[in-house]
Computed example of a mutant assay.
Amino acid sequence: MSIHIGASEGDIAECVLMPGDPLRAKWAAETFLSDLRQVNSTRGMLGFTGTWNGHPVTIQGSGMGMPSLSIYANELIRDYGAKRLIRIGSCGAMQAHVTLNDVIIAMTATSTTTPSSTMMREVNFAPCADFALLRAAVAAAEAKGTRTHVGNIYSSDTFYDERPDLTEQMTRHGILAVEMEAAELYSVAARHGAAALAVCTVSDHLQTGEALSAEAREQSFSDMVEIALTAAFPG
């Protein structure tokens, strides 16, 4: 048991999927896992462990934003021995050619700052995905026929952003989408020698103002979870 995760020894699988929303963790676990059991409810941040195609998998909510994600990623790796962590969540498209329901596989994650940035001091550390997970996720998406983009995303510190100039520069430099967790996940995984990846579904578009309905989100999020699970266990 750790400070923020009430699971017992052996309750957490080496592969962990990390949605921000604890209720999305519950939905994903109930939808995709067998032999399911709840392993965490501390502070309402739900976690579940079960099996997918015979493989042990934990799905643990991370909360919103990099500080919250950092807490759970650190404890999952340090206290429970997690070795592969895959963020599954929503993102906002920043490029015109990216559309609603598309899946973004984050090769790298740009940020203005992260909880880990103070450790690097003057060094601009470049958080990147584990290549084996990245390659397996791309192959899984191609096999499913899912419209997918691979590249750089922006992990923002703020949801209600008031920096249109920053958004313009991000878009100009080819950043595909914005979310709030991946850069810190990649940094924490690198620090502890774990593998990490972020697979996100485009739920809204910063340029057009479009957004998915709740029903459409559920359907498109299913593709994202399947891609993440297949990437974790490519067979």
Rank of each mutant, 00 (worst) to 15 (best):
A190H: 10
A139C: 03
A189G: 15
G145I: 07
A129I: 09
N124Q: 14
A194D: 10
F131L: 15
M64H: 09
Y160K: 05
S116A: 12
R191P: 02
A93C: 03
F125I: 11
H173N: 15
K144N: 04
A182T: 15
S155Y: 01
A177S: 13
C91S: 06
Q95V: 04
T110L: 08
M170Q: 08
S116C: 14
A143V: 05
A190W: 07
T158V: 15
M107G: 14
I105P: 00
V98N: 01
I86E: 05
G151I: 05
G89C: 08
A177Q: 03
Q169W: 11
L134G: 05
A140V: 02
S156R: 02
E142G: 13
G174M: 10
D165H: 15
L206S: 02
M119Q: 14
L197T: 10
S70F: 04
Y186K: 02
F131N: 07
P67W: 06
D130Q: 09
A139L: 11
A96T: 13
A196C: 10
M94S: 08
S117V: 09
V178P: 00
T114I: 01
R121S: 15
H173W: 10
L176W: 01
G151K: 07
A93P: 05
M107E: 14
E162D: 15
Y154R: 03
P127K: 05
H173K: 12
A141H: 06
E184M: 10
R191A: 04
L85F: 08
F131M: 15
H173P: 00
S187K: 09
T201I: 05
A177F: 00
Y80M: 07
V103S: 02
